[in-house]
Design a binder for these strands. Structure first.
Length: 770
DNA sequence: GGAGGCCTCGGAAGG
DNA sequence: CGAGGCCTCC
């Protein structure tokens, strides 16, 4: 055994070895792009096991199912089946397991439902309607975001409603009743015995915080904690980790502050930047040698990230050959850009006799993929798009799962509303509205009302009542079979007797056929699950009976995002994806498209310098995906939503040290873009804005800095009212009113087109015409 | 209760 | 332009 552990370490360089061997006390592994981060994590777990650590005492957390799966496989290769008993998974999956075990301590049943974003949004939309609020002002997405942010900061509905800062903020954004929505949302989740994604974290924290026994139990259990992609943790994840590790401090976090690109969903880069203040005796290991990319790529990436102020110092270097310089393509339009990229792929592939899988095209937003696809199709280059609608988010799949979910948890309101009239059984909106009102009046779930309809005064026709009663009887008959039938038998029964299968079978359109096939695929997956051997789960969980039942299948289903489609499709294809989804991947040849100011960096993102730094990290991630060669491209004109807009090359191109660039394709056509954006921000800072308007000069309103109070004064002045503006979509209009302050300036504009409509718009979207 | 016309709006994405 | 939500009319 000893001999074997030596062998394990032989695969690692010195820095990696040191990080693996330091198994006691807090450890931070700062791992640069391509430096073998995952390698260190897997070898560290293998090393722990070789040292005799019980696999049950190791907790390894990742952000994606894919990362967890891959790590499990890798460790199994190193140490064998022992690896299966390590607590390994995403934050959400591990904590939902714990919450099911401890559910009664936080007042939930063990079979609680997990609401995905779609379920949450539907619930919020219905609450907004019930409160008769303006859904233009209270947009579901935004409301959910606010609630999610609150939960991430451990602010529950009660506290939300009394926190002065939050109240002021909601008043200012004209949404004073957000707190009320939050309260009702929480109550309704409880009534449905459901948790949303944020609750899985929030409630785990609550469990550990309010329950010393549970805290003690899990501190003793998780003697060794490992966290991947630590730069992407949010506040509540950070606090949970801190609690779990408080006893023995055997926590090892691995990450790269330069690759923190999820700020917009609550990731807090400070968690990694300030780790030292939490654990003063933390051992820091830097992995700075890059094994992935050529010298030119590494250097160019370094020259980009050096522009960021907020970062931990490290210097990525490589022993790899210098390689080619980064090539830049200037295209006339988005179509032209696609053509240039497709030609280049074709040419490179032919010259070097490479498979398509060696190429990836990355972009900032999904909408960019269309013109690229067209160009690839024209040259018959096979491609594969990553992202898009995942299997478990498809309508027909969610419909069938809702049947399963309601069978498993009768209180689940969103599941009930989704299927009570699908397939159609004559229980329409009117009836459901009455029931919803009745349910909230009596403070019970809709199921409760339907199940004990004799207790409530329901004002609906006898015919409808009968239909409802048939439905309830059916669901109940499913529920009683949960423990007596295996998952596949019951699933098949539900799919058939609910009428769902027949409904899809009758639809002979292409779409209908594919939906039917998807249902078959889901049923097949359940069949496989049923035939699986019961895995060696954790000793904490009660022994499950021999039968693989549907409720067990449903446990984590909401946490699954893709159906391993990647593995199925192993054809040789070019990969197309957003930069976000490219993190963790690598390709010999990488094309980064759409390098235009306002597209990448994205105009809507940049409201302050920190956002710009995140965009820059995103660019860093994109460049460091490449092993051999990076190509950058931008279009001078781009169609967006049917409009052709003039584009400027991205400032990011300019930020790369010219030494690493090959400008031959650009020649003198390339102009530095410095003056433009700089001038704009100067304008804003110096309040010259007024002057420019006076002179009647056409001016694009600055988008790189958030507005300051100084300009508000300018904008508030009568001067701004009455001036002519242009909006990329609505055309030319006149400002009739300006209101708000700070970053919330709103201009009411009367447009000449779009039916003379009054629209409320952020000022930054307008061009001042005069 | 359901189908089709009208209106709206456009970000990256994990669980 | 195109997808998705809402409303109106049947």
């Amino acid at each position: 055994m000893q001999k074997h552990s030596v062998n394990i370490l032989e695969d690692l360089n010195e820095a990696q070895q040191n990080a693996v061997k330091c198994i006691s006390g807090p450890v931070l592994v700062l791992a640069g792009a391509g430096s073998g981060k995952t390698r260190v994590l897997t070898y560290r777990i293998a090393y722990l096991l070789k040292q005799g650590v019980d696999p049950f005492n190791i907790l390894s957390l990742t952000f994606t199912n894919k990362a967890a799966r891959e790590m499990k496989e890798r460790i199994e290769k190193l140490v064998g089946t022992e690896a299966r008993s390590v607590w390994m998974g995403t934050f959400h999956s591990v904590f939902s397991r714990i919450l099911r075990i401890e559910s009664e301590k936080i007042g939930y049943p063990a079979n609680f439902s997990i609401y995905d974003t779609e379920d949450s949004k539907k619930l919020i939309r219905s609450i907004i309607k019930e409160l008769e609020l303006n859904d233009k002002i209270y947009q579901t997405g935004h409301v959910l975001q606010r609630i999610s942010a609150a939960k991430t900061s451990l602010i529950d509905a009660a506290r939300y409603n009394i926190e002065p800062d939050i109240q002021t903020q909601d008043q200012a954004s004209m949404k004073p009743r957000l707190g009320e929505i939050y309260s009702i949302y929480s109550q309704r989740l409880r009534k449905s015995a459901a948790m949303d994604f944020d609750d899985l974290l929030f409630n785990t924290y609550l469990l550990l915080h309010t329950n010393p026994e549970a805290l003690y139990k899990y501190q003793k259990l998780f003697k060794y904690i490992l966290v991947d992609e630590y730069q992407d943790t949010n506040h509540v994840q950070y606090l949970i980790l801190k609690k779990l590790a408080a006893d023995n401090e055997n926590i090892c976090v691995v990450g790269d502050d330069a690759q923190s690109i999820y700020g917009f969903r609550g990731a807090n880069i400070e968690n990694i930047l300030s780790l030292k203040s939490d654990y003063p005796d933390v051992n820091i290991f830097k992995l700075e040698q890059n094994y992935r990319s050529t010298g030119n790529i590494v250097n160019a990436a370094n020259s980009i990230i050096a522009k960021n102020k907020k970062q931990l110092y490290k210097e990525i270097w490589t022993e790899n050959a210098e390689g080619n310089k980064i090539k830049i393509f200037k295209a006339a339009s988005d179509g032209d850009e696609g053509r240039i990229i497709a030609d280049s792929i074709f040419e490179t592939k032919m010259n070097h006799q490479l498979p398509h899988s060696h190429f990836a095209i990355l972009y900032r937003t999904n909408a960019q993929s269309r013109s690229l696809e067209e160009a690839l199709r024209r040259l018959n280059i096979p491609y594969r798009i990553y992202g898009g609608l995942s299997f478990y988010k498809r309508k027909e799949i969610k419909d069938l799962l809702a049947y399963f979910q309601l069978t498993n948890n009768n209180q689940d309101e969103q599941a009930l509303l989704r299927i009570i009239n699908y397939p159609q059984r004559g229980i329409g909106d009117t009836t459901l509205n009455k029931l919803t009102v009745l349910a909230s009046e009596n403070n019970v779930s809709i199921w409760e009302i339907l199940n004990h309809s004799e207790l409530y005064k329901i004002d609906i026709h006898q015919g409808t009542k009968n239909k409802i009663s048939d439905f309830i009887t059916m669901i109940k008959s499913f529920s009683v079979q949960l423990q007596t039938k295996d998952a596949y038998e019951l699933a098949k029964l539900i799919a058939n007797s609910s009428g769902l299968l027949k409904d899809l079978y009758d639809d002979k359109s292409n779409e209908g056929v594919s939906r039917f096939e998807n249902i078959e695929e889901l049923l097949n997956a359940i069949k496989e699950f049923t035939e699986e051997e019961i895995e060696n789960e954790n000793e904490l969980e009660p022994k499950e009976n021999e039968l693989r039942t549907l409720d067990v299948f449903m446990k984590d289903i909401a946490l699954l995002t893709d159906a391993d489609e990647d593995d199925k499709d192993n054809m040789d294809k070019v990969s197309l994806m957003t930069i976000h989804s490219a993190k963790g991947l690598e390709f010999p040849y990488v094309y980064i498209s759409g390098l235009e100011e306002n597209l990448f960096p994205s105009m809507q993102t940049i409201t302050n310098r920190e956002d710009l730094e995140e965009e820059r990290r995103l660019f860093y991630v994109a460049v460091t995906r490449a092993q051999n060669q990076v190509f950058l491209s931008y279009a001078e004109n781009r169609y967006r939503w049917g409009n052709l807009t003039f584009c400027e090359p991205s400032r990011f191109i300019e930020e790369i040290d010219p030494e690493y660039l090959d400008m031959s394709r650009i020649k003198k056509a390339y102009k530095p873009i410095n003056n433009h954006s700089e001038e704009d921000s100067q304008l804003f800072q110096n309040s010259v804005f007024n002057e420019k308007i006076k002179k009647g000069k056409l001016k694009k309103v600055n988008t790189t800095e958030k507005s300051t109070d100084t300009e508000t004064d300018n904008l508030n002045s009568e001067l701004a009212v009455g001036i002519e503006v242009e909006h990329e979509r609505f055309g030319i209009g006149k400002i009739t009113q300006i209101e708000g302050a700070g970053s919330n300036i709103k201009a009411t504009v009367l447009f000449k087109t779009a039916g003379q409509k009054q629209l409320l718009l952020k000022f930054a979207r307008l061009k001042i015409l005069k």
